[in-house]
Nucleic acid binder design. Structure first.
Length: 481
DNA sequence: ATGTCC
């Protein structure tokens, strides 16, 4: 195994030869401390494994929140070139296809919560179905599931869950192109029909947060964020339909066998050439599940607005509850990037990594021309979350990508052994954070000590030039699965 | 992450 090399304060190289068969180097954006963590849980080895994929270009990248995942590390970015037999790999997207984050602003300040925080957390808990299984707020009948999978946010709005302008504040305007509902299995659709507008479990959450530090005033102003303001962050994904779709396609790829002369160093790196019809099918299904995830967060936000309306006896419009932005951090996208100086379409896998277009990116909507694309980074339970913006430098450094969150630092099993759910609840409440009723058994798996510090992660991304920190948000109320 | 095994 070759030695790692420090390239810069926040940039590390895993040279070709770190593992056998690498076509490009691995490159990890991290402080020394975070890079050491990546090496310790063998996630760095996964970065090197990804570098063996056919058609991979540039390098196999990892963000500072990298940790061990299925095949690809979570926090990994890999671009493959269809013109050089590049592949598409479900493991490079993850089981929770389209998982992402949404931030809603309000005109309320922390003082408005003094008498009503507990009531609000309770109301949110009632409006937002959660937990494993979980029935959604908006049941879907028959073939309407195909419309969810094709239209995303637009479908939810048509069903009355939201405002007509909400799509404008979502990545891809709330509807991923190239979605093909006919490539999603009936079994996956059946799981999806009952789950639109449900939070899920694990690290998925909904939080009432206070903007407690502004670092980039003009960008914050553009996004409608001011210090002391109440916001709501939603972290959720495509639930059962995405999980089933990932499972379905891993099985289909497995059935093809080793037909393309690529022997992956890890069976979980199963992949198929982009120009093979199975890749086209998976891509259509993946985008469809991404649309489900977008629609899911839209319906969840509708529940948030309803909860605020009931508690504050005022309309969501009058409360200023505009959508700030919505990002997905588990998708593979066809994008144009400069490869050896020539612009070429490549397939950028982002698994636990967020697209972060800079101010001069041609595909950036006009309204973000002065700031770059907004990026939402959820912290672990009870710790701060962040709003970032993309940089032009990221286009050449990381295929326009940045981090996605705190990143796990301890296994679920180990985290559970440190503290009981009830103990953790007491700790959060003594820190002034209200917690909606939940299943205490699973709570301690999500304890802050089980995660890296999101503050360190976003600082490393800023240090590496991949994004800029706009605002920090502090949680005061938590709704968990 | 996930009807934590069809």
């Amino acid at each position: 195994m070759s030695k790692t090399r420090r390239i810069d304060e926040y940039e590390w190289e895993l040279p070709i030869g770190f593992v056998d068969g690498m076509r490009v180097p691995g490159r990890v954006f991290a402080s020394r401390e975070l890079f050491d963590k990546a090496l310790a849980d063998r996630a760095a080895e996964q970065v090197a494994n990804v570098a063996t994929l056919p058609g991979i270009v540039g390098a196999s990248f990892a963000m500072p929140d990298i940790h061990w995942g299925y095949g690809f590390p979570i926090g990994g970015v890999a671009a493959t070139d269809p013109a050089s037999d590049g592949v598409l790999s479900p493991g490079g997207v993850g089981f929770d296809i389209g998982c992402g984050v949404r931030l809603v602003r309000t005109d309320l300040t922390q003082a408005d919560l003094d008498d009503s925080l507990r009531e609000l957390v309770h109301a949110l808990g009632n409006q937002v179905p959660r937990g494993v299984g979980g029935r959604g707020r908006l049941p879907i009948q028959g073939s309407d599931i195909d419309r969810v999978l094709t239209e995303g946010v637009a479908y939810a709005i048509e069903r009355g869950a939201g405002w007509s302008e909400d799509g404008q504040s979502c990545e891809d305007l709330g509807t991923l192109p190239d979605a093909d509902a006919s490539q999603v299995s009936e079994r996956a659709k059946e799981r999806g029909r009952g789950q639109l507008g449900s939070l899920g479990a694990g690290n998925h959450f909904l939080e009432i947060q206070i903007v407690d530090a502004i670092r980039e005033r003009s960008a914050a102003e553009l996004l409608g964020l001011v210090e002391g303001q109440v916001c709501v962050m939603i972290h959720s994904g495509s639930r059962g339909v995405g999980h089933q779709t990932c499972t379905d396609y891993l099985r289909s790829i497995d059935r093809l066998g080793n037909a393309f002369g690529y022997a992956p160093p890890d069976r979980q790196l199963a992949c198929v050439p982009l120009n093979h019809e199975l890749a086209e099918s998976y891509r259509g299904a993946m985008n469809a599940c991404g649309n489900f995830a977008l629609a899911n967060r839209q319906v969840l936000m509708d529940g948030v607005r309803a909860a605020f309306e009931s508690v504050f006896q005022s309309s969501a419009r009058d409360l200023g509850m505009q959508l700030v932005y919505d990002v997905s951090h588990n998708l593979a996208k066809l994008e144009e990037h400069s490869i050896d100086g020539t612009p070429r379409p490549v397939c950028v896998h982002r698994k636990g990594a967020t697209r972060a277009f800079g101010p001069s990116h041609p595909d950036l909507p006009e309204r973000f021309r002065s700031t770059g694309q907004p990026v939402l980074i959820p912290g672990s339970m009870g710790t701060s979350s962040f709003v970032l913006t993309g940089t032009d430098a990221a286009a050449t450094k990381s295929f326009s990508s940045t981090c996605h969150g705190a990143g796990r630092a301890m296994s679920r099993t180990k985290a559970k052994k440190q503290m009981s759910g009830q103990e953790l609840r007491k700790q959060l409440e003594s820190a002034g954070i209200a917690l909606a009723r939940t299943r205490w058994k699973l709570l301690s798996e999500e304890a802050p000590y089980a995660y890296k510090d999101a503050e360190d992660v976003v600082a490393a991304c800023e240090g590496a030039g991949l994004s800029r920190v706009v605002a920090r948000l502090r949680p005061v109320g938590v709704v968990k699965g």
